[in-house]
Design a protein around this nucleic acid. Sequence first.
DNA 1: TTGTGCATTCAAAATATTTTGAACGTACAA
DNA 2: TTGTACGTTCAAAATATTTTGAATGCACAA
Lengths: 188, 188
Amino acid sequence: MHQDLAAVNDSTVAGIGRLARFFGFNEVMGRLYGTLLMSPDPLSLDDLGERLQISKGSVSMNMRAIERWGMAKEVWMRGERKKYYEAESDMWQVIRNVLGGREMREVQLALQVLGDSVKRLKSAQDELTAEEQALAEYYLTRVADLRNFFEFAEMMLNSLLITEGDGAPEELGQNLGGDFDWGQTFEP
Amino acid sequence: MHQDLAAVNDSTVAGIGRLARFFGFNEVMGRLYGTLLMSPDPLSLDDLGERLQISKGSVSMNMRAIERWGMAKEVWMRGERKKYYEAESDMWQVIRNVLGGREMREVQLALQVLGDSVKRLKSAQDELTAEEQALAEYYLTRVADLRNFFEFAEMMLNSLLITEGDGAPEELGQNLGGDFDWGQTFEP
DNA sequence: TTGTGCATTCAAAATATTTTGAACGTACAA
DNA sequence: TTGTACGTTCAAAATATTTTGAATGCACAA
């Protein structure tokens, strides 16, 4: 193949691998996804292992993860017994799939834990010595700060995830406005 | 200390540790930061090692990383020879520090690589066979998709980073509007 | 300047993650 | 139903990351 075409493919695949690592996936996942993205035609597991020089097992496991994240899907090639994959090429869809499955859970969990902390602190008020009460106060402000932050993050994520159809969110601000106090600060 | 206060401290510290891992830091960094955040007073390296039961070396190295990320700063305690730290408690500032130092670089790099690819493809046009030209076309659309995506990400980041003062960005949309085509899609 | 009390460094050890490949399972063509 | 061509699994190996603690460095009080 022409040298420049190969170079473009390689640097893109390497770049996406780097990004994948950066976002907490492993690099091979990124390179597999990149390879699919840069291929006009679906590729089989063998094709992928061949191109990236990795073992059958690794291709199989990593591709399954990629599929679960909604970053690629299987494609049926008639008359073929092999599995073929093609990349989800709408970046917004990929982002939505990943955020929806991961960051969202993480934020929900954080909010849950913080909510529990507030309850716990408030219901313990009576049993506390003066010194402990001061610490409880302090904890409440810190926990409130964190909650504000995560509520904001949740709202941002929702506005991305709710967006219908392809492409960039039509107007990010639209989904966010309304019931959120934008003027807040974390140092009251 | 009262059981509920300890529990709130511990679950918050654990939660922030988890988040740190999630965002590509190591868990100990998160727990150190969480411990500082939940302490009304600055803590020394020994205090931190003691509370988290980790070695002097680990505290030293991880705290330095935390400091570099702008997540905590040193505090001078007069008459003390120890180093004391306190957490940066403005979450928005933390986010800005981290994004500014990391994601921003990453996005810039990606844009740079993609820009190079476009140049390379365009200047190679002449030397290509018909088949190679078709592939080059395909590459150009994929690379353009990625570029749109990263340009959007860059703009989002800028609007967060540019915000002055404490607290949540006053109006995220404001910084974004204007020169960006919100109506674009990645599948023209 | 010296002694002391820290922080820092770094090589080795511990731990965690990822890859490999052989063994196994499965679906499909014949 | 059988043989085959594939995919999947998983334990062991390879690799990467993190922690440890002893050695070292540094600044300050005296």
